[in-house]
Amino acid sequence: MLESWLAWSEPLSLLIALVIDACYGDPVALYRKLPHPVVVIGNAIGWADRVFNREADAPRRRRNAGIALVVLLVAAALAVGGVIQALLLALPLGWLWLGMVMSALIAQRSLYGHVADVARAIEVSGLEGGRLAVAKIVGRDPNRLDRAGVSRAAIESLAENFSDAVVAPAFWALLLGLPGLVAYKAINTADSMIGHRSPRHRDFGWAAARLDDLVNWPAARLSAFLILLGALLLPSADAPKALAVTLRDARRHRSPNAGWPEAALAGALGFALNGPRAYHGVPTDEPWTHKTGRKTLDAPDIWHALRLYLRACLLLGIGVTAVAVIGH
């Protein structure tokens, strides 16, 4: 009986989390008094980076230190998530409290808001406003971007983070409950902080980057599938083209995962994404995704991409609902 209840409560709690996040986003007032869980994780990673990633150490020693950090981080996340889940499910309406906690680690609404801010900034303040807004969500040099580049960067961020910040957390929560969700966020945060190819983090962040690639593998493919299905619900989108571009271009992306949702969105909306850009002043010759698509993107195209994103999020919720019903 208990195992059956737990199997049902987790997808139900995840569904509640998706609904709460879609409707309300992060409880800003709460996080003025308490740190966000991701901030706590980030502080721990930052401390370990300062203490154990010593430039005087040999590359092998720095890599081993990074591996140890990831192992301890994941173990701690699983343990903390497991204890919190057990305590919450022991309460009356525990599945509801669990859903409220899970909602803090899913970013549907905040992702929509950040990308929509770029579109609004372009409309109100032109190129300079768009550059300031997009700098908050991408790592490339905003001052090198023209209006189309700013729009393209926002749309690419939307596609990639649909996988990383929405689908992947939901996937691991569905599979392993709150422990899986917390562990995923710990891995993803570690990758964003130390999983770089810079001289400082090439070795220390190696394990974080490789593990992040692994845990995002299923979600990236699922994200592309949800975008493809979402294109069927958006009259101005092209679902067959989304499939064709995904199968052709997804593997050409420098990331083993980001190319999947980006290719699906590019094909669905007829956009050319990725291509050459610069990070920290260093130009990179990235291949185009859907090279024959339209490159002159602008604020209306960001809104178009957001409409497709909303449909993909809705389909994710329907899928989780189906799992909850079947599990019950």
Rank of each mutant, 00 (worst) to 15 (best):
M1T: 13
M1C: 14
L12V: 10
L30Y: 14
R32Q: 11
R32P: 15
K33G: 15
P35D: 11
H36Q: 06
I41K: 04
I41N: 00
I41C: 09
N43C: 15
N43F: 14
G46M: 15
E55Y: 14
R60Q: 11
N64L: 10
I67L: 13
A68Y: 05
V71F: 14
L72P: 10
V74A: 08
Q85C: 07
G94N: 11
W95F: 15
G99I: 10
M100H: 04
V101Y: 06
A104T: 10
A107P: 05
A107T: 03
S110K: 03
Y112G: 08
H114N: 11
A116P: 07
D117S: 15
D117T: 15
R120C: 05
R120Y: 09
A121I: 00
S125A: 09
S125N: 12
E128K: 09
E128S: 09
L132Y: 14
I137N: 03
V138G: 09
V138C: 12
G139N: 10
D146L: 09
N161C: 06
S163A: 06
S163Q: 00
V166P: 00
A173Q: 00
L175N: 00
A186V: 01
I194F: 02
H196T: 02
R197P: 05
R200G: 06
R200V: 14
D203G: 01
L211A: 00
V215I: 07
A219H: 01
R221Y: 09
A224H: 03
L226Q: 04
P235A: 14
A237F: 12
A237E: 05
D238P: 08
K241H: 08
A244D: 09
D249G: 01
D249H: 09
R251T: 10
A263D: 07
A263N: 08
L269F: 05
F271K: 00
L273S: 00
P276H: 11
P276C: 10
R277W: 07
R277F: 04
H280D: 15
T284A: 15
E286D: 10
P287G: 04
P287C: 05
W288R: 02
G293A: 08
D301E: 11
D301R: 00
L306P: 06
A312V: 02
G317S: 03
V320F: 05
A322F: 09
V323M: 05
V325E: 06
